[in-house]
């Protein structure tokens, strides 16, 4: 594997994205709207929000991410430029890794935008340390991006791919989604310190397993 080639692909995608702003604009707008909808749906000043809030925050990323992150592959497929990448001597691993890095940059931007917005809209007082919360969230997003990017590479040739992606990726993402919600709740509502949250290790283990498999299987996914 040649990490320079993967980074070249990520750099190229970021440059294209910051000139067209096609995806990021959509992601930010969509997460803003979703947060607003969640806010409308929740009873104001309800004590239950302390428990439910972390889950709502997390689902903003899942909803926006599911729609936005698959664009990285689907766009290249639609424009035919993916074949240009595959003609070059780069393996599937480099292409997938490039897209993971690019998607991670996008979702971190969404995080930067959505977390303060969430706190302001819901008037949420985080019980634990803010840094711990950001770390837990970022780790969850890393897992989400690794699995989501790889699955979107698998489904990009399918009919009705945006729908197929949801159906295939969601169950594979549950070992990231469930522990992250629990861990977020423990930091944000219970104020537990990061070291005492076992769920984080579960996410980490899943990321390692899925990254290894993606590494081994990427060439099979992107071979034609």
């Amino acid at each position: 594997m040649d990490a320079r080639k993967a980074l070249a692909i990520a750099r190229k995608d970021l440059r294209v994205e910051f000139r067209s702003r096609a995806t990021i604009q959509f992601l930010l707008l969509f997460s803003f709207l979703t947060l607003l909808m969640f806010n409308f749906a929740s009873p104001p000043f309800s004590p239950a929000l302390r428990e439910v809030g972390p889950g709502l925050l997390w689902f903003v990323f899942i909803f926006a991410g599911m729609l936005g992150l698959s664009r990285a592959f689907i766009k290249e497929k639609e424009l035919g430029t993916l074949e240009g990448l595959m003609l070059a001597p780069v393996g599937g691993v480099e292409i997938v890794l490039g897209k993971v890095v690019y998607n991670l940059c996008l979702i971190l931007l969404v995080e930067l935008f959505s977390v303060p917005l969430f706190i302001a809209l819901f008037d949420y007082r985080v019980a634990g340390s803010m840094l711990d919360m950001i770390l837990v969230l970022t780790l969850g997003l890393l897992g989400f991006v690794v699995v989501g990017s790889f699955v979107s590479a698998v489904i990009m040739g399918a009919r009705g791919r945006e729908l197929v992606l949801q159906v295939v990726a969601m169950p594979l993402l549950l070992p990231v989604v469930i522990p992250t919600i629990l861990a977020l709740r423990r930091v944000m509502a219970d104020g537990a310190p990061l070291a005492r949250i076992g769920e984080v290790r579960l996410v980490l283990a899943y990321i390692i397993i899925m990254s290894t498999l993606s590494f081994l299987l990427s060439d099979s996914v992107l071979e034609e």
Binding site: V151, A158, L172, M210, L213, L217, S220
Partner: peptide, 10 residues
Amino acid sequence: RLSAVIGILG
């Protein structure tokens, strides 16, 4: 090929 990948991942 692609469903084999998902089978393994799953």
